[in-house]
Amino acid sequence: MKAVVWHGTHDVRVEAVPDPRIEEPTDAVIRVTTSGICGSDLHLYEVLTPFMTEGDVLGHEPMGVVEEVGAEVTTIRPGDRVVIPFNISCGHCPTCDRQLYSQCETTQVREFDKGAALFGYTKLYGQVPGGQAEYLRVPQAHFGPIKVPEGPGDERFVYLSDVLPTAWQAVDYADVPPEGTVAVFGLGPIGQMCCRIAAHRGARAVIGIDLVAERLQLAQKYGVEVIDLRTTDDVAAAVRDRTDGRGADSVIDAVGMEAHGDPIGKVAHRLTGLLPAPVAEKITEKAGIDRLAALHTAIDAVARGGTISISGVYGGIVDPMPMMQMFDKQISLRMGQANVRRWVDVILPLLGDDDPLGVEDLATHRLPLDRAPEGYEAFQHKRDGAVKVLLTP
C-alpha cells in the first residue's frame, strides 16, 4: 500500500510499505478514506525529529471503512464506517475506567514514561504506524473505533479523531463561567473549534489571537473578536481592554511549542535538530526548552482567579515559568492529551444537518495522498490560506 513516510526534517514522502494485517484478536484493519494533517504532525516535521525513525508512517486523524476484524472485536464489523481516535486505549483499565483514555495503562509507553500509545507519533508514544495511508491496523479495536452513519461526507465526521475532542476538552478544562469571556491563542484547526465550541456552550465573548489573515477571517465569520498579532504590540493589554480591564476569565493556549515571537526557543529547537539523533534525543529529554511566548502571554492575559487550558503540545523539560505571577494571580492550569472517547457522545449529535460547529468549512485543502508532501509544506508555511489539510488515499 501507499503511505506517508518520514525520512527526516522537512522530508516526508509517499512510498509503498507493507499492507497491515491482523496481529492480535483485538485488532481491526480499515481502508482509510480520509486522513488529516495535524499541527502536531508539524512537530515531527521539524521539532521532534530526534525521536523519529526513518520509515515511520505518519498520521493520527483517520477515518474509513472496516475491512477485517480480530476474533475478539464484536462492536464493529466489515463494512462499518468508522473514525479512529488518535490515542489507542483499551477501555477497561483503571485509567480508562476514569475516562482518562489518553493515559491508558494497557497501551502506556512505559519505556519513556509516557501515556497511551498514539498513531503515527514517534517512539515516545509507541511508534505505531499511522493513518496517512491507504490502510491502517487499529489495535484495541474492541473499544477505540467510533461508528458513524453513512451518507454525509467525511468532512462531517473526520474531526472526531482529534480536532473536535481536543477542542471540546480544552473548553471544558478552561472552566468558562456562565456568560464569561474566553481568549483563544492560536486559530489553527483546534483554536477555531475552541472558539466555536466556547460560543456554543454559552461564553459571552470569545477573543481569538493569531497572525495569519485567513485564520483571523475564518474566526470572525463565527462571531469571534480577533486580535491580530501583526499589528498588536501588547496582546495581554489588548485582551484586558476588551474585558473591562480584568483579563479573560479563561484562556486557551492552542499554540504550544510552535509559538512565534520566542527567539530563544526557536534557536534551541533548530540547534537541537542539527545534532546527531542520539545526542539530540537526550538533550530534548533532559534539557528541552519550548517556545513559551503564547503561554507566558496567556498567563498575563488571564483574569485573577481565572483558568488557563493548554491544548497546544509542549515538549520541554526545563521550561521557565513565571511562578510568582501564577501564584499571585491564583491561576488554575489544566492540560493534557484529549481523552477522545470521553467526549464523543456529546459531540456526535452536533454533527447533524444544521452543523452548528461549522465542521464542513474547516478544511481549506483536500489533496490526494500522493500530494501529501505538498500539503505538509503548505500547512507549515500557512501558504495559500491553509488552515486544515485533508488527504484522500
Rank of each mutant, 00 (worst) to 15 (best):
V4T: 11
V5Q: 01
H7E: 10
R13K: 13
D19L: 04
T26C: 04
V32I: 15
T34P: 00
T34W: 00
G36E: 11
G36I: 05
D41H: 04
H43Y: 01
Y45F: 14
L58M: 10
V73H: 01
C96V: 09
R98N: 11
L100Q: 12
Q103Y: 02
C104A: 06
C104M: 09
L118G: 04
Y125D: 14
G131Y: 08
G131V: 03
A133R: 14
R137L: 00
H142W: 10
P149G: 05
F157C: 01
L164I: 07
D172R: 10
A174T: 05
P178G: 04
T181Y: 04
G186A: 10
P189M: 13
A198V: 10
A198D: 11
R204V: 00
L211M: 14
V212E: 02
A213W: 12
L216S: 08
L218T: 00
D228T: 06
D228H: 02
L229V: 04
D233M: 07
D233G: 14
V235A: 08
V235N: 07
A237H: 12
A238K: 05
V239H: 06
R242L: 15
D244I: 03
R246G: 06
D249N: 14
E258A: 08
G265Y: 02
V267F: 13
A268C: 01
L274Q: 15
L274P: 00
P276W: 07
A280K: 13
E281W: 12
K282A: 14
L292P: 03
A294D: 05
A298H: 12
D300F: 01
V302K: 03
I308H: 02
I308F: 04
S309K: 05
S309E: 12
I310C: 06
G315P: 00
G315I: 11
I317Y: 08
V318Y: 00
P320Q: 11
Q325L: 12
S332H: 12
R334D: 11
P349H: 09
D353T: 01
L357A: 05
H365C: 13
L369R: 07
Q380A: 13
G385C: 01
L390H: 07
